[in-house]
């Protein structure tokens, strides 16, 4: 049984089908790339899985248990963490306070939560920013903080929504390495990303969506050769 199973997932916005009858699975310890042109429905999939939006139809299961109808905090408690495409720090708090708030999910005492936060910051090489206000971080560190908060909830599944958007090539390499280490720590990852270099390098499998529908799925090198992908993905972006 896969860790996360999605079956027939559908979401309408009025007349628009943002996600249409989408099925896929995420295995234990896997990095699944989720790609597609702008507006394909990737972020909507994340909103649906994490309870920020309700599906119009379909089933989502984590380790066999349905998540449909749960509010976001309950999904997080079950073990799915996410980052936001447009980062959502607690701007008026320090980096450490931001992460400690997330660590409270698994630690009752403030001291334990703070220790767990310090450990996550160490892992993401953000310790030197512990005392900085989240609102004053540069883009790379904002993206790191976003990941640190998600990791501090000790997830089994991590959904990353464009963690590398806006980063320069050197920073993309650093971020890719970070995602790989997260996976080595036993967390399965779904990575939404437009930076193809990163997707190709670290994904075990890639899922391509267009207009809410799956158009291809498989190993990264094979998927990007498929005519449907070339047409949908590059056709739209280049034109």
């Amino acid at each position: 049984m896969a860790l996360l199973e999605v079956e027939g997932l559908t979401r309408h916005f009025g007349g628009l089908r943002a996600v249409a009858d989408l099925s896929f699975a995420l295995r234990e310890g896997e990095i699944l790339g989720l790609i597609g042109p702008n507006g394909a429905g990737k972020t909507t999939v994340f909103h649906l899985v994490t309870g920020f939006l309700r599906p119009s139809a379909g089933e989502i299961r984590l380790a066999g248990r349905s998540l449909v109808g749960l509010r976001p905090h309950a999904v997080a408690r079950r073990g799915i963490a996410r980052t936001f495409q447009i980062v959502k720090p607690f701007p008026g708090l320090t980096v450490k306070e931001n992460v400690a708030l997330a660590a409270f999910l698994r630690h009752r005492a403030r001291r334990d939560a703070e220790a767990a936060a310090a450990e996550v910051l160490e892992r993401l090489e953000l310790s030197h920013r512990s005392g900085t206000l989240a609102s004053q971080l540069n883009l790379m560190d904002q993206k790191r903080l976003e990941m640190a908060k998600a990791l501090a909830t000790r997830p089994r599944v991590l959904l990353l929504d464009e963690p590398m958007g806006g980063l320069n090539p050197a920073e993309v390499d650093v971020a890719s390495g970070m995602v790989e280490r997260i996976r080595e720590g036993g967390v399965a990852v779904i990575l939404v990303e437009h930076v193809m270099k990163a997707i190709m390098r670290i994904s075990d499998r890639v899922l391509v969506v267009n207009q809410g529908q799956k158009i291809a799925e498989g190993p990264p090198a094979a998927v990007v050769q498929e005519p449907a992908v070339l047409a949908a993905y590059f056709g739209k972006r280049v034109a």
Partner: peptide, 24 residues
């Protein structure tokens, strides 16, 4: 802990839910 949760809610309610805080 509740006090910390409230501050999180004041700062960003969706981000608070995302890290497992039952905001309601």
């Amino acid at each position: 802990r509740l006090g910390a949760y409230l501050v999180a809610i004041r700062e960003d309610e969706e981000a608070a839910e995302a890290v497992g805080i039952d905001t309601v």
